[in-house]
């Protein structure tokens, strides 16, 4: 079994970090995992993306043409990657920064105002965790508890004061997705 998640947004939205949290949780759960970043000039303010592949055998290609899951944190990412998602796949879109909905009818779409939710929680930068939380109810390979444990286990101790806010963002995302 293999699942591929493509996370995309502006540089600074925590796209790469959201992928790392997923990758840590997958590793701790005993899966094989590959986290592959876009590492070009886009790191410095343009669009950023990363692919996370989770599997139970040696992982082949670090990139896939058609991921099962897309987390689009901004409009350019949805425009670029929505057509590539596997049929029957999942698109989680940050409606705060979109002027349109998900148009594909052959995928499951979750649109939530992640940036607004994050702002209401006190920090716009939590939008990445809101988005990750929104994906979790529809993500069979890992549980929300495993994500939280991974955050705690791998976030450096000097950042542990941020854990509670991140947990709240994850839960708020999951709640919004199920609403």
């Amino acid at each position: 079994m293999q699942t591929e998640i493509l996370i995309a947004g502006f540089g600074g939205q925590g796209v790469l970090f959201a992928g790392q949290v997923l990758a840590y949780a997958a590793m701790d759960a005993g899966h094989e995992v590959t986290w592959f970043p876009s590492y070009g000039p886009e790191m410095r303010g343009g669009t950023a993306n990363c692919t996370v592949i989770i599997a139970d055998e040696e992982i082949g290609s670090p990139l896939v043409a058609h991921p099962q899951v897309l987390m689009a944190l901004n409009a350019p990412s949805l425009d670029k990657f929505e057509p590539q998602v596997q049929p029957e796949g999942l698109v989680v879109a940050n409606a705060s920064l979109l002027n349109r909905g998900v148009t594909r009818t052959d995928v499951k779409a979750i649109a939530l105002k992640a940036s607004h939710i994050a702002e209401a929680l006190g920090d716009r930068r939590l939008a990445n965790m809101v988005m990750l939380g929104a994906m979790m109810p529809r993500f069979p390979m890992l549980t929300m508890e495993q994500i939280k444990t991974a955050l705690k286990g791998h976030l450096p101790a000097r950042k542990h004061h941020l854990l509670e806010a991140n947990y709240r963002a994850l839960d708020a995302g999951a709640a919004a997705a199920q609403a």
């Binding site: 094989e32 590959t34 592959f36 992982i59």
Partner: peptide, 10 residues
Amino acid sequence: DGSIGQMMEP
């Protein structure tokens, strides 16, 4: 190559 240098794996 660049992908092995930049990717994270356990």
